[in-house]
Design a protein around this nucleic acid. Structure first.
Lengths: 330, 330
DNA sequence: TTATAATAAGGAATCGATTACACATCAATT
DNA sequence: AATTGATGTGTAATCGATTCCTTATTATAA
C-alpha cells in the first residue's frame, strides 16, 4: 500500500507538503502541486482513513442502526440516507438489531468506538437504558420513526395518518371497524396508531369491541393472517365490516386469510394498511394504504445529520407528511 | 473520550499491560487483569478502532458493493452476510453503485482506503477496467451473482434454473413461449438466462420468434409492463401462450398489462419469473418463480469471506442451488 | 535600502492503539 | 549454588496521516 511518505519521496518533498496539496490547505507552489497530483494519479494513492480519522477525529462514516435489515422500510430509508450523505463523501456503516433492544444499546457504543461521525437510529422501542446511552453519545444523533425525549427526532405523523384511515372507513359507511396492531412497546406503531383508531371511533360515536382488536406478535404477513383469523373467530355473529391493519404486510396476511375463507374484499370486509409496500399495488384487490415516503424520510434525516455535523442547529422534532392512497380494498 | 492511556493511569500500570489484558495476549497477573477490567467496565472504555486498524491493518469491516441498495435481492443478501459476519465481530460498510459501472471501480478503491478487511461485490456487469481493479485489490475479494475470471465467485445456477423454467412451460404443453429479458451487459441475468431459454426451445424443436423476445430497459415492474405490451403488439395474429420473464418484478409488470387488457392468466397466457419476491406469492394469480435463496447466498459468501480472512483456501467458484416454485400463473 | 508581509516547504509532535525487546522476579532443575 | 524457563511488566518504536512551529525565499511597501 502506498502511503503519504511514498508519495513524498517520489515527489521529492516532505509529507507535510503532500498533505497540504491533497487538502488544499496552506501554501503549495503550483509547480509542486502538479508534480504531487500526477504521482497521486499514477499510483492511485488514497490516504489511509484510519490514520486520518485517528488524527482528525473524523471518519466520514455515518452509523445506522436498523431494527431489521431486510425490510422495505429499512432499505428505502437507507437508500434515502445514502443518496444524501454519499454526495458529501460519507459512507454508511450498517448494524441490525434484529429487534433486540439490547443490541440497540450495544451498537450505539460500538459505532462510537468506530469513530463514526454521527448515528441514526431507526427506533422501534423506547426504554430507560436506551435513553441513558443516547444521552452519553458525543456525536450527532438522530432518531427516525420514534420521538425520543431530548433527542433530535424525525417522525412520521402516525396519529393523523391513522385517524385519516379510520375516517375513510367511516366515510364509506363502516361502523364496525376492526384493528390489527402490534405491541405497545413500539410507541409509534403500537401505541399511537391504535390510539388514533380508538379516538376516531369514539369521536364518531362508534362502539369499540375488544373482539375486533388484535395485536399480532410481529410485523409479519403470517402475523396478519393469524390476527384476522382470531378476529373472525372471536366475533362470530357480529363480524366487523372493515379492518385497519397497522402495516401493509399484516394487511396482506389478513387479506390472505379472508380470501381463503371465501370472503369478498371489500364487499364483506374492507381492508387497509400503512406503508405503501410495493406489493400493495399489485395484489388483488389493490390495497388502500398510507405512503410514508420512507426514502424522503431518509433524505431529510440525512440532511439534518449533515447540518448537525456542520454545527448548524436543527429543530428537535420534524414531523413528516404522508399520503393516503385509496385503492380497491376499501 | 477515554483512551488506553487513561485506563493505564487509573490502573497504575503501563498501557502495554492494559492492551495485553484486553487482548488476552501475553502475561498479565490475575490481580492486575481484574483491576483493569473493572476500570474498563466502569468507564465503558472501548478502544479506538482507527488506532487499532492503523496499527494492525485490520478494521473489522467488510465492504459491500451493491448495484441498488433498496431491492429485495440486495437486502436479503446483505441480511445473510450480516448474519454471519456480525457473529465474528465484523461490521458492514455499504456502498451503492446505482447501476453505474464507474462507481463499482471507484468504490473498490474507496473501500480499500477505508482499510476494509474484505470486499464483496454484487456484480451486474463485467468489464475490462473492473477486472483490472479487482486484480489490484489486496484484500479478500468475492463476487456474488456473476462469475468473474480469476476471482472467487459465488453464482446462482442461472442456466439450469432458466432451462427448468422453460421446460416447465413445455411440459404444460406450451409451444409459443415469449421471453422478457434485460441487456446482455449483465452476463448472468441478461445473457445466461436468455441462452438457456433459447437452448431449451431449440432442444425441443420449438420455433424461436424474434417478436416473442423483448428486453426491458431495466429490472423494473414498468419495464416488464412495457415489454409485454411490445410483445403483444409485435406478435398480433400469432400470440405466444406463455411468457418467461427473467425477474419477478418484470413478470408482475407483464401480468399487470395482461390483466388490464383482459387476458386470462394462465388461460390465455402463462407467466413466470425468477427471484421469489415476496409479492410473487400474494398477487393473483400467484406467480410461478424460482427461489434463489438470496439470504443463504449471502451467508455462503460471508463464510467464504471469513475463510479467506483466516487464510484458508477456498474454491474459486461456488454454484448455488435453486428451487422452482410452481404456482398458479403457469 | 531596509522593514514587512506573503509564499513555500520542512521538522517534529501528535492521535491511540499494538508489539518487539528488555529487564526483573521467582520457582524449578541440575 | 548456578542455570534455566516461566511469568509479569515496562520502554519505545511503529502504523499513516495532520498540523503547529520554524525557517528560507521572494515580493512589496516605506
Amino acid at each position: 500500500m502506498t502511503t503519504i511518505n511514498d508519495i513524498a519521496k517520489m515527489a521529492n518533498v516532505s509529507r507535510t507538503t503532500v498533505s497540504r496539496a491533497l487538502n488544499n490547505n496552506g501554501y503549495v507552489s503550483e509547480d509542486v502541486r502538479k508534480r504531487i497530483m500526477k504521482i497521486v494519479e499514477e499510483t492511485g494513492y488514497m490516504p489511509s482513513v484510519s490514520a486520518q480519522s485517528l488524527r482528525t477525529k473524523r471518519s466520514g462514516v455515518i452509523g445506522i442502526i436498523l431494527p431489521k435489515i431486510s425490510t422495505e422500510t429499512s432499505s428505502r430509508v437507507v437508500k434515502g440516507i445514502n443518496e444524501v450523505v454519499s454526495k458529501e463523501g460519507f459512507q454508511i456503516l450498517l448494524t441490525d438489531t434484529e429487534l433486540n433492544p439490547k443490541k440497540e444499546v450495544e451498537y450505539i457504543r460500538l459505532l462510537q468506538s468506530r469513530q463514526v461521525d454521527g448515528i441514526i437510529l431507526l427506533a422501534t422501542n423506547v426504554n430507560k437504558e436506551l435513553l441513558n446511552v443516547i444521552n452519553d453519545v458525543k456525536v450527532p444523533f438522530i432518531s427516525l420513526g420514534q420521538e425520543l425525549p431530548n433527542v433530535t427526532s424525525v417522525v412520521y405523523d402516525d396519529y393523523h395518518a391513522a385517524c385519516d384511515m379510520t375516517n375513510l372507513f367511516i366515510q364509506r359507511g363502516h361502523e364496525k371497524i376492526a384493528f390489527i396492531g402490534v405491541g405497545e412497546e413500539d410507541p409509534a406503531v403500537g401505541h399511537t396508531r391504535k390510539q388514533a383508531y380508538l379516538d376516531t371511533l369514539q369521536k364518531n360515536g362508534l362502539t369499540v369491541k375488544d373482539e375486533w382488536i388484535h395485536e399480532g406478535g410481529d410485523f409479519s404477513i403470517e402475523s396478519g393472517y393469524e390476527s384476522m383469523k382470531q378476529i373472525l373467530k372471536k366475533s362470530q355473529g357480529n363480524l366487523p365490516t372493515a379492518t385497519f391493519a397497522v402495516t401493509d404486510r399484516m394487511a396482506v396476511g389478513a387479506m390472505e386469510y379472508l380470501k381463503e375463507q371465501g370472503y369478498n374484499i371489500p364487499g364483506d370486509m374492507a381492508i387497509s394498511g400503512i406503508g405503501a409496500a410495493v406489493m400493495s399495488a399489485y395484489i388483488t384487490p389493490s390495497l388502500t394504504t398510507i405512503d410514508y415516503n420512507n426514502k424522503e424520510a431518509g433524505r431529510i434525516t440525512a440532511r439534518l445529520m449533515l447540518d448537525k455535523l456542520n454545527n448548524k442547529n436543527v429543530s428537535e422534532k420534524s414531523t413528516l407528511s404522508y399520503r393516503l392512497i385509496s385503492r380497491d380494498s376499501v
